[in-house]
């Protein structure tokens, strides 16, 4: 399908040079390549610069509360598992306020793709420390430097049961589009953590900083089926930063184990014979 099908009139409101433009483009390319009809795609987001993404892409969307995109997306998928459900948001939204939902979603393994635009800073609220900010980073809320160590989303995803764990980089657009496509195609919970530099509030982790460090796992003799290797690679950061798929697994999805969804998605199940059902159930109480 044409990429144009996934475009809308509204212009993205991100700062010129923002890494999120590449993520939007990667999603549009992936959807076109997978020939998904916009009516069958739902992009769910929370709050933050990157969470505005659903507004810039032609598909169904749900732009919800800060940190709560994951449970909304889970509810949508459970109600209609024929839909392609994609979550898009930032690191503060997903790894900060929404961290609990993130971990539970991975152990649940619904067939959902989670695209995190990780810029290691809070952008929309004008530059405070994020849970991913590096130790010592100077921000508006940490003028003496961040005292906490950063969350490692890749390691967290690996130990929490995500069945597709990958890292992308907004400065490597083609690679990112391919990763996004693989993530959507994967049956199960996919995390794509995307280093998406904030050109306004993060002067430390810039495109240039990443370019000096990134390498592709697929070109470095990495076995995506090996959890131990994946965990080891997930700890690389300072000098070398791996991009690509860390780990893939083929565990059954949550929806495939749910008895109620055996025949058809919930939304298509009829609700016109409830009186008969109630009459039958009342027998249990007499």
């Amino acid at each position: 399908m044409e990429i144009a099908l996934y475009k809308v009139e509204a212009k993205a409101t991100w700062c010129p040079g923002c890494g999120d433009f590449a993520v939007l483009r990667a999603l549009q390319i992936a959807l076109a390549s997978l020939e998904l009809n916009p009516k069958d795609v739902v992009i769910v987001s929370g709050i933050g610069c990157s969470s505005n993404l659903p507004g810039f892409l032609n598909s169904y969307g749900f732009h919800g509360l800060h940190g709560r995109a994951v449970p909304v997306a889970s509810g949508i998928k459970l109600a209609n598992h024929d839909l392609n459900v994609i979550i898009a948001g930032g690191d503060g939204d997903g790894y900060g306020i929404g961290l609990g939902h993130f971990i539970h979603a991975m152990r649940r393994n619904l067939d959902i793709t989670y695209v995190v635009m990780n810029n290691q800073v809070y952008g929309l609220t004008t530059g405070q420390a994020a849970p991913t900010s590096e130790k010592g980073m100077l921000t508006k809320s940490t003028p003496q430097g961040v005292l906490e160590g950063p969350v490692n989303p890749i390691a967290l995803a690996l130990v929490s049961g995500a069945t597709f764990v990958a890292r992308g980089f907004s400065g490597d657009a083609d690679h990112l589009a391919k990763l996004t496509e693989d993530g959507i195609k994967h049956k199960g919970f996919s995390l794509i953590d995307i280093m998406s530099p904030c050109v306004t509030y993060n002067r430390q982790n810039t495109y240039q900083w990443f370019r000096e460090r990134v390498y592709r796992l697929e070109e470095d003799n990495h076995d995506v089926l090996n959890m131990d290797q994946a965990l080891k690679r997930s700890r690389e950061w300072e000098d070398r930063i791996p991009l690509g798929i860390f780990y893939k697994d083929t565990k059954p999805t949550y929806e495939s184990g749910e008895q109620v969804l055996k025949d058809m998605p919930l939304v298509h199940q009829p609700i016109d014979r409830t009186v008969e059902l109630v009459k039958e159930l009342i027998q249990d109480f007499t």
């Binding site: 739902v42 709560r68 449970p71 509810g75 949508i76 459970l78 109600a79």
Partner: peptide, 13 residues
């Protein structure tokens, strides 16, 4: 928090 957000997702769907 997840409970109601999930239910809202399902209702939206």
């Amino acid at each position: 928090i997840a409970v109601l957000n999930m239910a809202i997702g399902a209702a939206f769907a």
